[in-house]
Nucleic acid binder design. Sequence first.
DNA 1: GTGGTCTAGACCACC
DNA 2: GTGGTCTAGACCACG
Lengths: 126, 126, 126, 126
Amino acid sequence: MIQIDYKDKRPLYEQVEERLRALIIKDVLKQDEKLPSVRALGVELAINPNTIQRAYAQLESNGFIYTVKGRGNFVASKTIWEDSEKKEILEAIKTAGKKAWQVGIAIEEVIQCIQNVYSTQEGGAG
Amino acid sequence: MIQIDYKDKRPLYEQVEERLRALIIKDVLKQDEKLPSVRALGVELAINPNTIQRAYAQLESNGFIYTVKGRGNFVASKTIWEDSEKKEILEAIKTAGKKAWQVGIAIEEVIQCIQNVYSTQEGGAG
Amino acid sequence: MIQIDYKDKRPLYEQVEERLRALIIKDVLKQDEKLPSVRALGVELAINPNTIQRAYAQLESNGFIYTVKGRGNFVASKTIWEDSEKKEILEAIKTAGKKAWQVGIAIEEVIQCIQNVYSTQEGGAG
Amino acid sequence: MIQIDYKDKRPLYEQVEERLRALIIKDVLKQDEKLPSVRALGVELAINPNTIQRAYAQLESNGFIYTVKGRGNFVASKTIWEDSEKKEILEAIKTAGKKAWQVGIAIEEVIQCIQNVYSTQEGGAG
DNA sequence: GTGGTCTAGACCACC
DNA sequence: GTGGTCTAGACCACG
């Protein structure tokens, strides 16, 4: 399902969280679909279930999944996280843009870079 | 000179490093200008000199400052870090752009956002 | 595991770093093998764990090992450092060769010296 | 006469020593020629005379110059340092060669590298 | 138990 | 005075 990179310096739970969030955003995991249990995913990734638990807790508090006691974890509706996620990403773009301006990168170069990304993604994945 | 945010969860030395790097990039600290001594800055920020030392060491190994034993730390020439810094920033923009594409933000909105940043910066500071 | 030379004037962390790097290069420490913990090696060498920590940090930033918080330090893949290491060594040979030329050592003598080293190594270890 | 690089991390006195040693080895400074006084060189390089003094002391203890109280410092005879200098350089070549062997650099490549240095030097300087 | 950060205080080399 | 190293001891985050 997902892949752990032990050479990544971030904590494991953060990696698990990021990977799952990506799957949800890309709609690989559909709304109301059940996620693997903490134990199952723990076994699959050879990771302590506590670590998986923590990743799930983060995802829940960010609105990406919801938990039903005794049943498991399920993908939440897009409507819950979509707006805040978009806002966060635009914020990141602003910050990066500011830095680009500071080191004197021309706006044309930045826009060119963005257009490259979009055309590559649409061509490669779409 | 700089300000520490104790609510920030990143390590102190990283904050100090980031703040000083920003000052150097914005050309507030000019080439060959002397930085405050580790002890002086330590006192000013109420931080242990060792922590300042670590920040300076990082800045040096990234080419932003150079150190002369017994004399102090000085701002290095732009030419040393300029290229790698630009590359890093464009990389950040790519990453952010990718995420924007994934959550379905239109490219026009991203470009609009960038243009806002540039016009604000040029008007406000330039 | 390794040996500290207190007559050596270089800092302790640099010695530790050098010794471990040598073990990695010689393939005594294999890829993904776990290094001793900072505390354990500190006890073994009668050195403060912070000093070991610094050596490990340097090795990591040079790509010789990778660190997983809460797990330990592990030997990285050769492919990461191999090229830069080779370049560095050839640079050292150039510098030494230049000096040899300056004091008037004949090229034949230098080559003879190199050949001795290689035949000794291949006979003694290989 | 010589040039100081403030971005060089080695102590100043070591740089001064190295530069002067190079001039002596290359025979730019001939035997029994007078070196500038510590004060004069200090002024020229905008360096504390104590630092120059230390460099001269090192050069003297290594046999490259000799001091006559009240007269100044003079270049010593080649015969004094030539042998030890050669030995030291060959030692450096051995060490570098050993490292080259360890990372698997072919002996042909090392020899090629040496030959390049020699032909370049003889062509460029002679 | 693992690494990572931080402090306080010491000592050294350099200028 | 400057930076650089080292120690001892503490606390935190991670698994």
